[in-house]
């Protein structure tokens, strides 16, 4: 009964693996990635506590978290949503339109950055005043005095 075809539109029944081993494996992968993400989040928190945080280092850590998030998304869609078990036509009809996000992200974040630059320079009429205000952590308020 496990290969029951639910609809006449389906030509080849999906084969369902018998065990739940793969599900638990993905659960552990997702948990470990989340823990790594949290560790990076706390690292960023500690870097921000320093008097002069290293912006490049923070950016690198943030990029790492983004990549880990994409890995999590891949495992959820491929294994939990079973998209990885479908035929190529099905995978492509879902994944290809989502590629629009690449342009979407680039264009809009670029736009935001440009707006910031225009604001800080009064539309290029003066040199940029860097107003990067550093927000010290609550705990070292007294230490700074």
């Amino acid at each position: 009964m496990s290969n029951a075809v639910s609809s006449p539109e389906i030509t080849f029944p999906h084969e369902h693996p018998g065990g739940t081993k793969r599900i638990w494996k993905v659960f552990w992968i997702l948990s470990v990635i989340t823990i790594i993400e949290l560790a990076i989040g706390l690292t960023i928190y500690n870097i921000h506590k320093e008097p002069n945080p290293n912006a490049t280092l923070v950016l690198a850590f943030k990029g790492m978290v983004c990549i880990l998030t994409l890995a999590k998304a891949y495992y959820i869609v491929s294994v939990f949503m079973h998209l990885g078990d479908e035929i190529r036509n099905m995978i492509m009809t879902v994944v290809v339109p989502l590629c629009l996000f690449i342009w979407f992200l680039l264009a809009f974040l670029w736009d935001g950055d440009s707006t910031k630059h225009l604001r800080n320079t009064d539309a290029h009429s003066r040199p940029a005043q860097v107003e990067q205000v550093h927000q010290p952590a609550a705990v070292d308020k007294d230490a700074k005095k």
């Binding site: 928190y45 809009f108 974040l109 935001g112 950055d113 910031k116 604001r119 927000q135």
Partner: peptide, 23 residues
């Protein structure tokens, strides 16, 4: 959801200061 999140990102990129989530 992507449109919401990217619009959030755009605004965040356009200002000099944003709330630190850890606080």
């Amino acid at each position: 959801f992507g449109a919401f999140l990217i619009s959030y990102g755009t605004i965040r990129f356009s200002v000099n200061h944003w709330a630190d989530p850890n606080h």
